[in-house]
Every structure is written in C-alpha cells, then in structure tokens.
Design a binder for these strands. Structure first.
Length: 311
DNA sequence: CTCCAGGGGC
DNA sequence: GCCCCTGGAG
C-alpha cells in the first residue's frame, strides 16, 4: 500500500456514516433495489449497462413478468428473448443473448443456484467484473466497492483522488465499510446520481460529504468524465442565458457556487473561472439583468462576490 | 503456449 | 460495460 491511502480522510467513520444516513433517509425507489433475487438483479444490471434507468423500469417489469426465474428464461427461445430486447428498445441485443446464455448456465451448470461471489459470477456469460460485483453486492451483500464512472467522479471531486484506475480502486475500497457492500454501493451510486452529477447539486441534494469535499471547498468541479469543452456551442449568449436561469432558481449565489452550474468545467483559476464569470456577470449587470454584490464578510480582505437576479 | 493491455464493435 | 481480437512479453 502506498501514500494513496492518504487520500482517504482520517475520520473515515464519519464520512461513511454521513453517506449511509443520507441514503437511508431518502433515495430514489427503483424496483430492483427492493429485491435480493440475484436473477432479478442481474436482469436490471444488464439492462442498465447502456440504457437510462427511467426506461429500464418498464422493461424490467415486463421481462420478469414474462420470464420470472432463470429457469424460465433458460427454457425460452433465444429469438423470443432477442425479440423482447428489440421491442423494448434496450439496445444491443447481444446482451439479450448473453442473458439467455447466463440463465442457461445457472440452471444447467450451477443447479439453479446463483453463485454468490464476484469471481464465480464472472463465469456467467456477459458478466464482467463490474456486473459480477454489483450482483454480489445487491443480491448477497457480498461484494467489493463498486467503481464506475459515477463513483470515479465522486472520488475525484470529494477526495482529490488522481485520475488513475488503481487509485480509484484503492480509495473506493478503503472507504467502504467491510461487509456492507449492499447499502454502501447503493449509497455511493445514489450520490453520483443525484448530488454529484456532471453538474453538481451539492446544496440542492444536501450532499452529506460537503464538509470533506475538496471540490466543494475549492469550487473546482471538473472531473475525469466531464468534457473540457461543452459538446455544443459554449457561446457567450448561451452562457448568459444559463446564468439567468440558474439565478432564477437559486436566488443568490457566490461565484464558485454559480460557476459549476454554468459550465461543468468551471475551475476558479482556470480559463473558465472567476475572471471569466465576473466578466459575464458585469455584462449582465450592465444590461440591468443581474446585481453583483461585493462583500468582505470575513473582514479578511478576501472579498466575496455574490450575484442575484435584479428584481 | 499463456497472460494481459489496448482498441474496436456491439 | 462486456466480448473478442490483436499484438507484445515472458
């Protein structure tokens, strides 16, 4: 083990408790979060591989209604399963083929009993490291820390973990309370899904990690999977419109809170940072749309800039 | 030959 | 995210 462990805050316990408490207090209800049936979990994971969760709910319900168990699916005709996939717009029907094959494996090679460790689960067709760990966690509470792009983004921002797979792996592992993969992985992924998306919603989502979060402290919310250049045109005109709509929603915003909501690649000292944002705001101010207020509340000379919509 | 990282395709 | 193929390393 290297210095990488230093990325984890010393009060890990508090960090863990805060997240789990936040998750248990309130979270999105997906049907696969209230089952512990490995087959049902696997179906949800395979469907989720590159389909928006909203669409998956209906497909998942329909699929399980049609083939309630792995044994049922194993007996189905491959063509019917692929047909289902297509008719529900689930994308690459290779995954339907894999799922069918995995069901056959479970019934014929595992005597109908799903294996319960990540290593064994990986033997199933279409089940790689990620899915194996997810099923082990959610069905058997027997997995390791999940590391996907959402988790990487959270760790990168919160604990300043370098953009390096081994580092992410190590920190994620160190953070997870042993034997709690089910609730933990659900909670971390929920965090990445509702509070720490590409555009962060720290306060709005009541992020439980704000007091430890490096990005929250510095205002730099860039992340590995956040495009440096907005894919569409980042024109000044669009940016102005965004400022107004954000201020409409949040009333009053400090520069570093506003910045990341305007551009995901906002970084206080970067090309699109405070300087850029102040220029934008002063234009809007000149046009009578926004009030910009300078203040030195701490009296430390560190003047804070706050913007709000002009009423 | 076996292992594995890297890239493309689905 | 997973599979498969390739190509280099041992």
């Amino acid at each position: 083990m290297s210095e990488l462990a230093g990325e984890v805050p010393d009060d890990v316990e508090a960090v863990r408790d805060a997240l789990i408490e936040w998750y248990e207090d309130d979270h999105r209800e997906f049907p696969w979060r209230v089952t512990e049936d490995p087959y049902e979990i696997l179906v949800s994971e395979v469907m989720s591989q590159q389909t928006q969760l909203g669409r998956v709910v209906e497909a998942w319900n329909d699929f399980l209604e049609r083939w309630p168990t792995a044994a049922d699916l194993a007996e189905a005709d491959r063509a019917d399963v692929v047909g289902f996939w297509t008719s529900h717009s689930l994308g690459y029907n290779n995954r339907a083929k894999y799922l069918h094959e995995a069901a056959r494996q479970v019934t014929e090679e595992y005597d109908g009993e799903f294996p319960d460790t990540p290593d064994e689960l990986q033997e199933l067709m279409g089940v790689g490291p990620y899915t194996a760990n997810a099923v082990a966690s959610f069905a058997f509470n027997n997995g390791d820390a999940v590391v996907d792009t959402n988790v990487k983004r959270v760790l990168y921002r919160a604990f300043d973990v370098p953009d390096d797979d081994a580092a992410f792996e190590q920190v994620a592992q160190a953070l997870m309370p042993a034997g709690e993969s089910r609730v933990w992985n659900n909670a971390v992924m929920e965090l990445g899904g509702v509070a720490c998306e590409k555009t962060p919603a720290c306060d709005g989502a009541q992020c439980p990690w704000r007091e430890w979060c490096h990005a929250y402290e510095t205002g730099d919310f860039t992340a590995p999977d956040v495009p440096t250049q907005p894919s569409f045109e980042g024109s000044r005109r669009q940016m102005r419109g965004k400022v107004v709509s954000v201020l409409k929603e949040y009333d009053k915003q400090a520069l570093d809170d506003l910045g990341p909501r305007i551009r995901v690649d906002y970084a206080p000292d970067g090309e699109y940072g405070r300087e850029w944002l102040r220029g934008l705001l002063s234009d809007l101010s000149d046009d009578g749309l926004v009030d910009v207020e300078e203040r030195d509340s701490e009296g430390d000379g560190e003047g804070e800039v706050v913007a709000r919509l002009r009423r």
